[in-house]
Simulated scan of single mutants.
Amino acid sequence: MFGLFAMQQSPATFNRRDAAAHNIAPKLSSRGPLHEAPRTNVSPLFHPKGFAMSATPGFIRKEDAVVLMLDHQTGLFSLVRDFQPDEFRNNVLALAATAKYFGLPTILATSMDQGPNGVLLPQLREILPDAPVIKRPGEINAWDNPEFLKTLKATGKKQIIVAGIVTDVCVAMPTLSALAEGYEVFVVVDASGTFSSVARDSAHIRMANAGAQLINWFAVACELQRDWRNGMEGLAALFEKHIPDYGNLISGLKR
């Protein structure tokens, strides 16, 4: 722990003496064995240059997007520790409501829902009664389930908006699989939960490095809307329901 802490100090306080004390070899380069790397106050783990941008990063296109909601099951909700329970549940339902409002094809999936994982959150079925539900009997990665993959590919969409429980497994694995097959993937970070912030952050870094775009449900809705003149009242009502503070802004529309 101390060694890691020392490495994350500012360059002014971490010098060759510290490197020697912690058995850190000096960086070799063509300019000499003691040439230091460019100095930065940002931890290498979170340095922006550590994230591999997708070849053509862009916005979500409503006509080319599908929503995947993976393993939002009653039992698995109890594993989520990186959000408060009410906050997380609201975010999940807000994403579902966003998908419904914009008419995006949506696929729901569960994993071994006859056991302790529990059934799909009932409110999701209420919001999306016509969405297919793929019940995986054992595959951890939804991408490995033939029915799931067939249903996804039948939509013909190439942009995937995905959220689920847990972030580092049930979201990360199909995200990496989809990226490998050429899909654009948008991971909805606030509708995906896991055991801890450490698990969440490492999963985010892994997916971003692979080319996924990290986004929240509010940003998803705004990218799909693009212009308030494209029907303000419906989206405003959605925001008011799921972002209580937004009601202060929406109240101006009701005068």
Rank of each mutant, 00 (worst) to 15 (best):
N248E: 09
Q73G: 05
A19N: 00
A109C: 08
Q123M: 12
A65E: 01
G252S: 10
F2W: 06
P132C: 06
F148P: 06
C222R: 11
D82Q: 09
N91V: 00
C222M: 15
N90T: 03
L249M: 14
S78M: 09
R136C: 04
L124R: 04
P244D: 04
L120D: 01
E147S: 11
E184G: 02
F218R: 13
A109G: 14
E87D: 12
P137I: 02
R255Q: 06
F5P: 02
T175V: 08
I140E: 05
S196G: 04
K62C: 02
E63G: 13
K241L: 05
T98Q: 05
N23M: 14
N230V: 00
L93D: 00
T167F: 08
Q213Y: 08
F5T: 03
R61V: 02
V187D: 03
A99K: 11
T194M: 13
L104Y: 08
M1G: 13
G234A: 10
G164N: 04
M53W: 08
K150C: 07
F83G: 03
S54E: 10
N91M: 09
I107W: 10
V162M: 15
Q159Y: 07
M7Q: 09
F148T: 00
A99F: 11
S251R: 15
N230Q: 03
V42F: 15
A20S: 05
L4Y: 12
R136G: 01
I165N: 10
N216I: 01
P33T: 01
P244T: 03
H35R: 14
A219H: 14
P26M: 07
T56V: 09
R89S: 07
P146G: 02
G103L: 11
L45G: 02
L34A: 07
R125A: 12
G118E: 02
D64N: 15
N141R: 07
F59D: 04
G3H: 11
T56I: 04
G193M: 08
P33M: 06
S196R: 09
H22G: 08
F186I: 00
P48E: 07
F102Y: 13
P38S: 06
E126N: 15
T56A: 15
K158G: 09
L124K: 05
S29Q: 03
G3A: 15
A178L: 14
P105M: 02
N145E: 08
V198Q: 14
N41Y: 11
K153R: 14
L214Q: 04
G252N: 12
F239T: 00
N117C: 10
L79Y: 09
F51W: 05
A208P: 07
A21F: 11
S177H: 08
T110Q: 11
V66Q: 01
L104W: 09
V187W: 06
R81A: 12
A109I: 00
E233M: 13
T40Q: 10
N91K: 10
A94F: 10
L224I: 02
D168G: 11
M7C: 05
A237N: 13
